[in-house]
């Protein structure tokens, strides 16, 4: 099947939804809920003024900072916990308990500790993405097949070679899965965090559009942009899955 044939059904569904939406607004004569076209014009207006780009940039900056911070902590920590039994049995119960706490629940504490600047959402993104990445990396180490570890042991290689040539590449596919999950959660959380404490970002755009005169065209415009950016971020992570050194894991 060609690529066009694959995307055609989903495009058709979106077109139907847009039509239903448009008809519903026109038939009910709603004064507040916008038509799809009003969403487009409202968003274009914001883009022309430049505030849209500022908000997108602010959100992306926060996600990038918090996410990269989380990667730099989670990957070494996950490798350590996967390799050293004592580290796993000590830290895993704590992480399993912290993991199900919604990042939203951390918002009051984040404001208390970091105020209402950039640090709060960065902290929240860090908190939300670090746990899934630790868990995935640790699981990745635990699922390395014994025959590979035995082969490495058989050849009597140094610890450095063992890590560089066996452990890290064996876990890399799982790390990438963890990064995909982590970045997805991070993008969810940044929008939520910006709705509460901040004066910039896509979350702020949405809540501010509602508060400042019921501009629901911009509320929906913001939501659509969040969706599109989230999809592109996931697409970028999926590119990593195409690397030659990890394809063995996804090929089957």
């Amino acid at each position: 099947m060609s690529k066009l044939q694959l995307v055609l059904p989903s495009l058709a569904v979106i077109a139907v939804l847009l039509t239903v939406w448009w008809l519903a607004v026109v038939l009910t004569g709603s004064a507040i809920f916008p038509t799809p076209w009003q969403v487009v014009t409202g968003t274009l207006e914001l883009a022309r003024e430049g505030t849209l780009w500022d908000d997108i940039g602010a959100s992306l900056m926060r996600v990038a900072t918090g996410f990269l911070l989380a990667v730099s902590i989670a990957v070494p920590l996950g490798l350590w916990m996967g390799w050293v039994k004592g580290a796993f049995s000590t830290l895993n119960p704590l992480f399993q308990m912290l993991r199900p706490i919604s990042p939203i629940a951390w918002i009051p504490i984040a404001i208390l500790w970091f105020g209402v600047g950039n640090e709060s959402p960065i902290f929240l993104i860090f908190i939300s993405s670090v746990f899934p990445m630790v868990v995935q990396t640790t699981a990745g180490v635990h699922t390395i097949e014994r025959r590979y570890l035995r082969a490495a042991e058989n050849f009597g290689v140094s610890r450095y070679t063992l890590f560089r040539r066996v452990i890290i590449p064996a876990v890399l596919p799982q790390i990438i899965v963890g990064m995909r999950i982590g970045l997805g959660v991070a993008w969810l959380v940044v929008v939520a965090a910006e709705m509460i404490a901040l004066r910039s970002g896509l979350g702020y755009l949405i809540i501010d559009s509602r508060n400042a005169g019921n501009r629901y065209d911009l509320v929906i415009g913001g939501m659509v942009i969040i969706g599109i950016i989230g999809l592109s971020l996931d697409g970028m992570m999926r590119l990593l899955e195409g690397l030659r050194t990890v394809r063995w894991r996804y090929a089957h």
Binding site: R147, A151, N154, G156, R165, W248
Partner: peptide
């Protein structure tokens, strides 16, 4: 213990798929 002077070739193979 194992030694690089004596190499075991396991039944399922142990060629590293990532290299």
């Amino acid at each position: 213990g194992p030694s690089s002077k004596r190499i075991l070739m396991p039944q399922q193979g142990s060629v590293f798929p990532w290299l």
